[in-house]
Write a protein that binds this DNA or RNA. Sequence first.
DNA 1: AATGTTTTTGAAAACCTTTTCAGACTCATT
DNA 2: AATGAGTCTGAAAAGGTTTTCAAAAACATT
Lengths: 334, 334
Amino acid sequence: MKPTIRDVAKMANVSISTVSRVMNSPETVVESKRLRVLEAIEHLQYQPNAFARGLIYKRSNTLGVMIPDVENPYYAGLLRGMQDAAVDLGYSLMIVNTDRSKERTITYVENLYEKQVDGIIFASDILHPEYYDIIRHYQIPLVLASTNSIEYDVPSVNIDNEKGAYDAVRYLIELGHRKIGMLSFPYDDSISGEPRYNGFIKAIKEYGLEECATHVTYADHRFESAYKAAEQLFSKYPDLTAVFTASDEFAMGAISFLHEKNILVPDQVSVVGFDDIRMAHMYVPKLTTIAQPVYEIGQHAVKKLYELITEEKVQLYTEILSHKLVIRNSTQEV
Amino acid sequence: MKPTIRDVAKMANVSISTVSRVMNSPETVVESKRLRVLEAIEHLQYQPNAFARGLIYKRSNTLGVMIPDVENPYYAGLLRGMQDAAVDLGYSLMIVNTDRSKERTITYVENLYEKQVDGIIFASDILHPEYYDIIRHYQIPLVLASTNSIEYDVPSVNIDNEKGAYDAVRYLIELGHRKIGMLSFPYDDSISGEPRYNGFIKAIKEYGLEECATHVTYADHRFESAYKAAEQLFSKYPDLTAVFTASDEFAMGAISFLHEKNILVPDQVSVVGFDDIRMAHMYVPKLTTIAQPVYEIGQHAVKKLYELITEEKVQLYTEILSHKLVIRNSTQEV
DNA sequence: AATGTTTTTGAAAACCTTTTCAGACTCATT
DNA sequence: AATGAGTCTGAAAAGGTTTTCAAAAACATT
């Protein structure tokens, strides 16, 4: 049996109130008793029961994290930042994979609510009305990480995806590339699909390369489909000298395809990715990419959630962290 | 304010006992009342409070997972399997990164204990006596995933690392390689360092290649240090035609190094990895590797922990899942 | 109609902690 | 020695649920 406060009290020969006080406001109990209590706690290896505490404080010191898929390396970095910040603030994390399934997601929200999480971080997916409604209804504090919402007024931490894409493409143009294609997320993905595409378009227009606007193929978020999309892209536009991809995984898909066709990267085709996942610098060639500060996004998201929980409001609603272009070996002058 | 069982009772005009019964043994309450209660629950969107329940059942339906580092892609697969199995069994997961730090790990155990997790999965690290003692003392059910313990009698799910390494090296030998090196984890890592090294040795001895036994360099678990280790290895033994690496990340480190030295893989040097992380088939070249059934390891670990929690014992103590050699493009005949 | 049996119900205790409140004790002041 | 102020302590209530137990209600049997 786990020792309870009662056992400690008995052993130290004081009331349970005194034991509680030793733990929560030790200065109010005389030294002699305090020492006895401390000794008893140590001896029994007593740890207060979080259920009983939760019942009183109505807080669990636990945060729910909803991400599409732990296996995606991009989220791993996010998680890492969240974890570290949570530990600092005395919180634990409960992580669920939504797989971008509405049904699953809603069940998980119910779960997290029942488990009395103090707040939820919803990461990297579209905040559908169904999600918003239920979280809203339960009145669970919510912040968005690596995504944002246009329709709803929810605090978020993200980067400027359009600007990131723009910077990537401009870099290619400045290297002298004129025939540039793009491997895009689906356009209806308003989080990273639409803005990255828009950034691409903006850059090419600005430099008068309107004809590139059609050099785009779409793929869902996985490597395999990026590989196929690259195949399509290059069969239609074989004279492309550069391609901007919506993620590093897409970049790898493209490079894999090109490698198989014996097209050299970067000698014949330059590729720039997005995200700067850990693997980006392990790849052959090392990827030139737009680095997202994933770790910071994760950290800031939990800090913001903490702020929301404790102050019930948040200073800075929409936080945009800055990306940067990391130049490695998958690009070169034309 | 969150609705409580009392609010439901009031609205349905019954006692709280009846409400509780509707939720836990509905057949014992007459239909008319049951319907009224159900309606009230629906209307108030009532969810029972997990703290109060936990206090009674002494269970949280939450499992603690301790892994070295979420960012390592190998663990992501593990986690995925655990998550899916946990959801099936009605459990949530609380995940912590130990960073292989003793101090941190012990604090986390205390945390998880306080949060009343029903059990702990300890993954991919050595179960130091300090860890074992504290978990043991708190009497928290424990299973090991992707690791095992020689000193202590703890249920575990793992693969046969020595056999895996042996199979990898034998494959290289059968391809005709005679000058084979290894990039090993530290030998004092008794989980994957020692057995994989031993498997290497076993294979080369069996084929009379004793002189290869010295062609080994060591690195900690990260890419960068594998890169350096590869540098050492090839500067000492430049005529190696194949190298077996203790992980896919190591394989990538080796290939990166070789690529930079303009040594072609697999044309001049064959490389075989270990783990088959998701990235392995995205790499250029796609890695030949020993595939661990990570997803299954995760799943089985959760199931085993569940068994341990509910039955207080476990059928199969040490579970060894089978690996397989996946032949891709980083190896070829000599 | 009276009795016995079974089903259904609600009151209250239990789980473990924190916190309020009032009483006991200490110490200083007259 | 009596009073007052201040410090320390323990009893009890509260938090939300499940479960036991006894009472009430429903039904069946004579």
